[in-house]
């Protein structure tokens, strides 16, 4: 396989016409994940710049590169920052950090900033873990659910699947939605079951009606969405009419960019997710910067 279908585009943003030297306080947050690393910089409580990159095999280098990219060549160095907080799986590799924070708290706080005060249900769909957080109407975590072992590595498994099916990761979602009716999902237990099963759907002649390419994608992403739905469901008593999830839902993390997953979740929960102008993967880093 010559092309890297899994490789999603990195992103960075810098507020224009604003010099960090004019600010009285600079704070930064850095979220070193298993799959992606983000850095966010705040000047006087205002978002100044951010970057979102692939982590790769060297966690320490990724942390440094994300921070440099977020500063955007403005000459801002970590020495110029008063407070730096790190979070995520590889937080200890952010050597510049002065503080280490809990991921659930960071994502909750970051999502509030990005999606507005109504965001009280935050589903972080990351490379390694899926974290679903329920917040009070103020910035405090009421309850949270982390993916357990067999639902782990969801983001990475989608990357792996993009390569196996040879579909660019950014196109998977839209293609999976281009089906008349959702087929039954593949195994919803574990991705090492789901991935070979998805490939198995391509065995024409095995099923009565062979799946089209888009239907295979639909069956796979449906299974991913199903597992996430289970986590969100644990935060609410949906059967008893706990409708606090309506209008309060924010998706963060890499899989939030996959419409094939988010649309299916919205459909199942009967609500529309909030949207943000910022890259949804940034929630952890922004939250860390705000809590620094």
């Amino acid at each position: 396989m010559s092309e890297a279908y899994w490789r999603w585009p990195e992103s960075s943003w810098l507020r224009e016409g604003r010099d960090w030297r004019d600010a009285s306080g600079v704070a930064a947050g850095i979220d070193v994940g298993t799959t992606s690393t983000q850095a966010a910089i705040f000047c006087d409580g205002e978002l100044h710049g951010y970057a979102n990159i692939h982590t790769g095999p060297d966690f320490r280098a990724a942390a440094e590169r994300a921070m440099a990219l977020a500063a955007g060549g403005s000459g801002l160095k970590t020495e110029n920052m008063q407070r730096i907080a790190a979070t995520g799986f590889g937080a200890r590799n952010a050597v510049c950090a002065t503080k280490f924070l809990d991921e659930v708290q960071c994502h909750g706080r970051g999502a509030r900033f990005m999606y507005g005060p109504e965001a009280t249900t935050v589903a972080d769909l990351g490379g390694q873990t899926t974290k679903c957080v329920r917040l009070y109407d103020w910035d405090r975590v009421r309850d949270f659910v982390m993916s357990d072992k067999c639902a782990t590595g969801m983001g990475r498994s989608v990357e792996m699947m993009a390569d196996m099916l040879q579909v660019p990761i950014t196109e998977m979602g839209a293609r999976s939605l281009d089906v008349e009716k959702d087929p039954e999902p593949v195994s919803t237990t574990c991705y090492s079951f789901a991935n070979p099963e998805t490939i198995g759907l391509l065995r024409t002649g095995f099923k009565e009606a062979p799946y089209s390419g888009n239907e295979v994608l639909a069956a796979y992403l449906f299974a991913v969405a199903w597992r996430i739905l289970g986590s969100i469901g644990k935060l609410y008593d949906l059967d008893a009419g706990d409708v606090k999830v309506h209008g309060s839902l924010a998706f963060t993390g890499g899989l939030a960019k996959n419409a094939g997953i988010t649309r299916r979740l919205e459909r199942a929960l009967g609500t529309t997710a909030l949207s943000s102008v910022h890259d949804p993967q940034l929630a952890g880093a922004i939250g860390a910067a705000l809590l620094a």
């Binding site: 298993t34 095999p57 060297d58 966690f59 320490r60 799986f89 590889g90 200890r92 590799n93 390694q128 072992k149 067999c150 782990t152 590595g153 990475r156 574990c190 991705y191 090492s192």
Partner: peptide
């Protein structure tokens, strides 16, 4: 026992800055 766990363990080794050849 399981590739999902194997990958998680490998990532934890990387997080401890174990040389990637050893991982």
């Amino acid at each position: 026992g399981c590739i999902v766990f194997a990958e998680l363990d490998a990532l934890e080794l990387l997080n401890q800055n174990v040389p990637r050849k050893e991982v």
